[in-house]
């Protein structure tokens, strides 16, 4: 047994340990967060924690309902904007665009995915909030004074602003995953459809998207999960006013991640407060992990050709 072989087997063992550590990291996170949120879970029922909208830490009321509703609302708005924009763009890039456009678009999409969330937030504050406050909100709430446009929040810091900023943040992800999925669709399928006289769009609609629909679903799920957990940008533009549940796209919303970020500093001062906030983190962890597992699971099977 010489030194080289010893080194090889030592390396193998430590690398194996390392990969097991990576495997267990997410379980460790779940366990750690659960451990720390035990105090509040023991005292208050899960039902009340998740669905009650009463959040008065000083009085010992820790209902996350309003925050969960806020997250869902902002995420829904973001998805409503991001899905059509990014899917249409991805289809355009992969099926219609000239190769040079595609070669240019890909690095740009990557660059955008790398920009700091805070910078998106700054843009939200500087550009989106004024746009919503001065134009969208007065226009829509005057012309359509009903759900989901009626609101008395004139600040511009609202769910819609958050949704717009989030939509732009997640579209690079949706676009690049969708593009990759569309690229796995064999060119011969397009040729087969075109050669019976289908137009390009008919080919996309009936043949390409049909083949790729599962992969595209995964792309959307991954974008959704990213929107769900994004913190700084929504913290900066959503208004974060306590409110039972937002009833309008122009109402302020207080999403879960923003709550966690905002309570930093004060959460050790009140009993159970920290446990409730970490419980919120656990909820976020559970939801995003579930989405991601679904999304990546689908993609893995899609790529290996099982679907």
């Amino acid at each position: 047994m010489d030194v080289r072989k010893l080194r090889d087997s030592l390396a193998r063992r430590s690398m194996f340990t390392l990969s097991v550590a990576v495997l267990s990291l997410s379980f460790l996170m779940a366990l750690g967060l659960y451990q720390r949120s035990r105090p509040v879970l023991d005292r208050i029922s899960l039902r009340e924690l998740l669905f009650s909208t009463l959040w008065q830490p000083a009085q010992g009321h820790f209902g996350l309902g309003a925050f969960i509703a806020g997250t869902l609302w902002v995420t829904a708005i973001a998805m409503a904007i991001a899905i059509p924009l990014s899917l249409l763009t991805a289809i355009y890039l992969s099926e219609y665009a000239h190769r040079r456009t595609r070669d240019l678009a890909k690095p740009v999409v990557d660059l955008l995915a790398g920009i700091s969330p805070v910078v998106y937030g700054v843009w939200g504050v500087v550009a989106v909030v004024p746009l919503v406050r001065d134009h969208l909100m007065p226009f829509f709430s005057a012309r359509f004074p009903f759900f989901p446009f009626r609101s008395d929040n004139f600040t511009g810091y609202c769910a819609l602003s958050g949704g717009i900023v989030l939509a732009l943040m997640i579209s690079p992800i949706i676009i690049s995953v969708t593009d990759e999925v569309l690229r796995t669709v064999p060119q011969a399928i397009r040729e087969a459809s075109l050669s019976v006289g289908a137009t390009r769009w008919q080919t996309v609609k009936h043949a390409v998207l049909r083949k790729a629909r599962i992969g595209i679903t995964a792309a959307v799920i991954l974008g959704l999960s990213r929107a769900f957990g994004e913190t700084m940008a929504v913290l900066m533009v959503c208004g974060c006013a306590m409110r039972v549940t937002p009833h309008s796209v122009f109402d302020a919303a207080y999403p879960l991640p923003a709550l966690i970020a905002n309570t930093y500093g004060e959460m050790m001062s009140i009993p159970l407060y920290d446990a409730a906030v970490l419980m919120a983190a656990l909820v976020l962890f559970a939801v995003t992990t579930l989405f991601n597992m679904a999304g990546w699971g689908i993609l893995l099977r899609f790529e290996s050709g099982d679907m």
Partner: peptide, 14 residues
Amino acid sequence: RKKMGLLSQRPQVL
């Protein structure tokens, strides 16, 4: 393309 039916190298079913 409707006028020209194509049979490709590998059969490509939709």
